[in-house]
Design a protein around this nucleic acid. Structure first.
Lengths: 205, 205
DNA sequence: TGCGGTAGATTGACTGGTCAATCAACCACC
DNA sequence: GGTGGTTGATTGACCAGTCAATCTACCGCA
């Protein structure tokens, strides 16, 4: 070989995963053929099946890899000595930063897993719910400490929080709202600010 | 025929649509075969293609039929002389009532269209955005009149509002949160209440 | 140093099954 | 006998997953 460099096995595996991210992001899971992934990765068709049991297994690996980061970050944030609002802001920021850092992967995860209740969403429900659950606990703590109003169901807020943030990411993904660096900076704070304080003005007249 | 009753043509068409709702709700769009729809409707396979150009056309008809009701209701609500909060509550209530009235159809619309950004969601983006847009306008009006805080981007709230409500419906659809009659009654009001007033307590000490 | 041997990586042609859509025939009523 | 509704077998395309063959790096041994 000209350069004498041989790609280590692990790198081919990684190359397949990275190629899958790009192709899934571009065409969606259902419209991508396993051949597309192999082509994009520059490997033979069969090699995908050498490293992964199935096309589905590729997707699952991509999801689990990233989602466990979110879960770990959420847990860490929950344990820290912060006000509820700051914890929520931390989670929002982590998700948005994930998107800034790797928009294609986040697009795939949100579009194909988190919001795909019929396919991967069903398979990974437990992990997805674990993320909601951290938010619920933060809210419940806030209620216990008298910072948050007691009438709102914490589980309900957990889902709401993720529903809102995912919708926001969807907006970026599909160009419905501007995706500038400035927007990213503001968006996370704005979600939490609005969630905590509401839309209405509360003037002390 | 024993009962001498002949089903009118239009009824067969309707029977196919109704059957499609049930099958799509049960198995999801991608896992339902056209044969499943025909079987469920009690008609021959080919008749589906007599009334509809394709499997996709069946789904499109289901979506458009219902979504236009939502659009009309939203527009009507927008025109009425109500406070912004009441208009938002009206929309939330309409969506939730739609779900109570026909949970299977709403499940299909949300799971397969509204949140399926890669398939039908892309096709029907304009109509979907029209719904978000009404909310945005309500918020913008509220800001103009000084009822709502000015810092929040109305477009952003439009997406948020739907993201939250759809997540809530998803929760009911998949049994993540209790779907009792009482819950339905409270849920719509709670979304709007929380959105407008925020989670935090605003005591006038 | 050179040489069989082996395990794991890599290749891509092929198979088996699935399913949307077509179509030619059939039926019932006017 | 004609029109519009109705039937279901057939077709043709598509594609996930299999598999037998090939390649390459490296090891033990003389």
């Amino acid at each position: 070989m000209a350069d004498g460099v041989r790609v280590a096995p692990a790198d081919k595996r990684r190359a397949i995963l990275d190629a899958a991210i790009r192709v899934f992001a571009r065409q969606g899971y259902h419209s991508t053929r396993v051949a597309d992934i192999a082509d994009e990765a520059g490997v033979a068709y069969g090699l995908v099946y050498h490293y992964f049991r199935s096309k589905e297994a590729v997707m699952t690996e991509l999801f689990t890899e990233r989602w466990s980061l979110l879960l770990d970050a959420s847990d860490a944030l929950y344990e820290r000595d912060l006000r509820p609002r700051e914890k929520l802001a931390g989670i929002a920021r982590f998700i948005i930063d994930s998107y800034r850092h790797d928009p294609e992967l986040m697009k795939v995860i949100i579009v194909e897993v988190t919001r795909a209740a019929n396919s991967f969403g069903a398979t990974h429900l437990p992990e997805i719910r674990r993320a909601y659950d951290v938010v619920s606990r933060i809210v419940a703590d806030g209620q216990r400490d008298g910072v948050f109003r007691a009438e709102v169901d914490p589980d309900f807020v957990g889902m709401w929080f993720y529903g809102a943030i995912e919708q926001l990411l969807s907006g970026w993904v599909f160009g419905l709202i501007p995706a500038t660096d400035e927007e990213f900076e503001r968006a996370g704070a704005m979600v939490v600010e609005t969630l905590c304080c509401g839309l209405e003005r509360h003037d002390r007249a």
